[in-house]
Computed example of a mutant assay.
Amino acid sequence: MRIEPVPKVWGSLLGSSRVHCNVELAERARTTLFQLEPANAGTYVLLADTYAEAGKWDAVKRVKRLDR
């Protein structure tokens, strides 16, 4: 990209990775979003939903503990 992506772009990427059950892409978006907006609860919810879709229940529990 010619410009640095803003958090909304990364959030869209995280949301689409949930729809397509792409955990690898979700984790990449998560890393950037946690740096840009660590207090945004939506990031945690989308990430937990992505893990749940993939059947990674231990990862869902870890994300839910991070959100506190």
Rank of each mutant, 00 (worst) to 15 (best):
D49R: 02
D58N: 11
R2S: 15
D58L: 08
I3S: 11
T43M: 09
D67Q: 13
E37P: 03
G55W: 01
I3A: 12
K61L: 13
A29F: 03
R2C: 12
L33E: 08
R68T: 15
E37I: 05
G15N: 07
V60G: 07
T50A: 08
F34M: 15
E53V: 02
A29C: 04
V19K: 09
D49C: 06
T50M: 05
N40R: 07
R68K: 14
A26R: 00
G42F: 05
S16V: 09
E24R: 11
R28G: 10
F34G: 02
K56G: 00
K56M: 04
V6N: 12
D67I: 14
T50Q: 02
L25A: 10
N40S: 11
K8P: 01
N40H: 11
V45H: 01
L66M: 15
A29I: 02
D58C: 06
A52I: 00
N40T: 06
L13D: 04
L14D: 06
W10Y: 10
V23Y: 04
R62N: 13
E37F: 01
R30T: 13
V9P: 03
P5H: 14
R65S: 10
V6C: 09
E27Y: 03
L46H: 08
L14H: 03
P5L: 12
L33S: 06
N40I: 09
T31D: 11
G42V: 04
E24M: 10
S17K: 06
R65E: 14
L47M: 12
A29V: 03
P38E: 09
W57C: 03
M1H: 09
W57L: 09
V19I: 14
L14M: 02
S12F: 00
W10I: 06
V63K: 10
R30Y: 14
L33D: 06
V45M: 04
F34T: 11
D49S: 08
G11F: 07
D67N: 11
D58T: 08
N22V: 03
W10L: 05
L33W: 09
L25Y: 04
E37W: 00
D49G: 06
Q35M: 07
V19T: 11
R28N: 12
R28A: 13
G42K: 03
V9Q: 10
D58W: 07
R2D: 15
G55R: 00
A41K: 07
P5I: 13
W10K: 04
L25P: 00
W10V: 07
V45I: 13
K8C: 04
V45A: 04
A39W: 00
N22L: 05
I3E: 11
N40W: 10
P7D: 15
S17I: 07
G55M: 00
T43H: 15
G15F: 01
C21W: 09
R28K: 14
L13T: 07
A29D: 02
L13E: 05
W57N: 05
E27L: 04
A41I: 07
V23D: 06
A41Y: 02
R18Q: 09
R65N: 08
T31G: 10
V63D: 12
R65K: 10
E24H: 10
V9M: 10
F34A: 11
